[in-house]
C-alpha cells in the first residue's frame, strides 16, 4: 500500500475500525441509446473484517454493478456519479481520486488481484484458454508480490492442493479446456487467493455449476475464508445459498438497498414487503408443499425509476406516500435496517 502514498492518495488509517469496506451513497449510471440507466441509486453498506456478506437481488437490481463500481470495473458507458468508498483505510472512489481516470485505473490495477480479488460467474470466460494454469496462477503473484518465479510456482502448487485439485504438479501444466466446470471454478478460487486478499468479491460463483458441485465450491469458499480470515462478499440471487453461507445479508431491489440484517433477521423477521415476498415465493422443500405466493408484476424500468420506493407497483401494502418519496432506512436493531414507510409509520404511532 506504499504505492498509494506516492500517488498522493488521501489515507485515513483507522486501525480500530472493524469495517474493511465502507461504501456510502454510491450512485452509478450508464449512458445508453435509450437514455440514462440509473443502475445503482444511493447505496450504502459496510463489509466487516472476517465476515461473509451476502448481497441478494434479482437481475437488474444493481447488485453486480454496485460491486463493479467498487472494483473500478464498470463498462465504458458506466460512471460513478456520487459516493465514497473506503477500502481498508484507503479511499478507492474514482470521484475523489486526484490525477484523472488513467491514474485511477492504474491504481486500481494494483489493488485488484492483490488485496481485493474477485471470483466471477462463468469459469470458462474468466480463464484465458491459450495460457496454461501455471501462467495464470503465477502471474498475479509476480505482479503484486516480491517473490521469485520459483517461489511463486511452489505457492501455486500449494494453492491448487488447498482448493482440492489432485496431482497439482502435473495439472499446473494443463490448459483450461482440460478441466471440468467445477475444477475451473476451483482454479479461479486459487487465483483469487494467490495474493492473500483482504476482501474477495464473488459474483454468482456457483450459478453456472450443478448442485452437487455447487455444494462443494461453497464449502470450499467457506473453509478458505475461515482459514485466511479474509472477508467475502457473495453476490447471488439464490436465498438458499446465502442461508448456508452468510452471517449478514443485504437485499437489493431496483438499484436500492431495501433491507440489511443478520441471516436470522432476514429469514425469520423480514420487515420489507419485498424480502417477505421473496421468501414466500421460493419453495422450501423441507416444509409441507403449499401454494407458492408469487410477487405480481415485474421489476421497475431503471431508465425511469420511480421517484419513491422502487417496489411500490408490486407491493401489497403500498400507500400514497410510497409512490412519491423514498423512505429512509429505519433502524430496527443494531444490525437490522429496513427502508419502508410502514416502519416509519409504526415509529410515529408508537
Amino acid at each position: 500500500m506504499e504505492r498509494s502514498k506516492e500517488k498522493g492518495m488521501a489515507v485515513t488509517m483507522n486501525p480500530e475500525s472493524t469495517n474493511l469496506l465502507e461504501v456510502k451513497h454510491l450512485t452509478t449510471e450508464f449512458e445508453t441509446e435509450q437514455g440514462t440507466v440509473k443502475a445503482v441509486r444511493d447505496v450504502s453498506f459496510t463489509v466487516k473484517k472476517g465476515e461473509i456478506l451476502g448481497i441478494v437481488g434479482e437481475s437488474g437490481s444493481g447488485k453486480s454493478q454496485a460491486m463493479y463500481s467498487v472494483m473500478g470495473l464498470l463498462a465504458r458507458n458506466g460512471v460513478v456519479k456520487e459516493g465514497s468508498m473506503l477500502f481498508d483505510g484507503h479511499d478507492i472512489s474514482p470521484l475523489s481520486f486526484e490525477g484523472g481516470l488513467k491514474a485511477y485505473d492504474k491504481y486500481m490495477q494494483g489493488v485488484r488481484g492483490n488485496t481485493l480479488s474477485m471470483i466471477f460467474q462463468d469459469p470458462m470466460s474468466f480463464l484465458n484458454p491459450v495460457l496454461n494454469i501455471e501462467t495464470q496462477l503465477v502471474e498475479p503473484m509476480l505482479n503484486h508480490m516480491k517473490i521469485s518465479r520459483k517461489e511463486a510456482r511452489e505457492k501455486a502448487i500449494e494453492l491448487l492442493r488447498q482448493v482440492g485439485i489432485p496431482s497439482p504438479e502435473t495439472r499446473l501444466r494443463q490448459y483450461p479446456h482440460e478441466f471440468s466446470g467445477g475444477m475451473r471454478q476451483r482454479i479461479i478460487i486459487a487465483i483469487a487467493l494467490a495474493c492473500n486478499p483482504k476482501l474477495i468479491i464473488a459474483d454468482e460463483p456457483t450459478t453456472a455449476l450443478d448442485v452437487t458441485i455447487q455444494a462443494k465450491i461453497l464449502q470450499l469458499i467457506k473453509d478458505m475464508q475461515r482459514k485466511s480470515g479474509s472477508s467475502v462478499m457473495l453476490i447471488t440471487h439464490d436465498l438458499g445459498v446465502v442461508a448456508n453461507m452468510c452471517s449478514r445479508i443485504v437485499i437489493m431491489y431496483g438499484g436500492k438497498i431495501v433491507e440489511v440484517g443478520t441471516a436470522d433477521e432476514i429469514f425469520f423477521q423480514p420487515h420489507h414487503p419485498y424480502t417477505s415476498g421473496l421468501l414466500a415465493c421460493v419453495n422450501n422443500p423441507e416444509e409441507e408443499d403449499k401454494e407458492l405466493q408469487p410477487i405480481p408484476g415485474s421489476p421497475p424500468d431503471l431508465l425511469k425509476p420511480p421517484a419513491g420506493c422502487p417496489f411500490v407497483d408490486r407491493c401489497s401494502c403500498a400507500m400514497r406516500i410510497c409512490k412519491d418519496y423514498m423512505p429512509e432506512m429505519t433502524e430496527l436493531s443494531p444490525t437490522h435496517r429496513c427502508a419502508c414507510w410502514l416502519e416509519q409509520k409504526k415509529e410515529v404511532l408508537a
Binding site: 471440468s180 467445477g182 475444477m183 448442485v211 452437487t212 458441485i213 455447487q214 455444494a215 461453497l218 464449502q219 439464490d238 436465498l239 438458499g240 445459498v241 442461508a243 448456508n244 441471516a263 436470522d264 429469514f267 421468501l279 421460493v282 422450501n284 422443500p285 423441507e286
Partner: peptide, 27 residues
C-alpha cells in the same frame, strides 16, 4: 441422497444442522 443433501435450503437453521453426504470425484 447426495443430490438431495446438496440442495441449498432457504432456511439458516436447517443449513447449520445439515450433514453433507459426500460424493467424491466428478461426472
Amino acid at each position: 441422497k447426495a443430490l438431495l443433501s446438496a440442495i441449498p435450503i432457504p432456511d439458516p437453521r436447517v443449513e447449520r444442522s445439515k450433514a453433507a453426504v459426500e460424493i467424491s470425484g466428478e461426472l
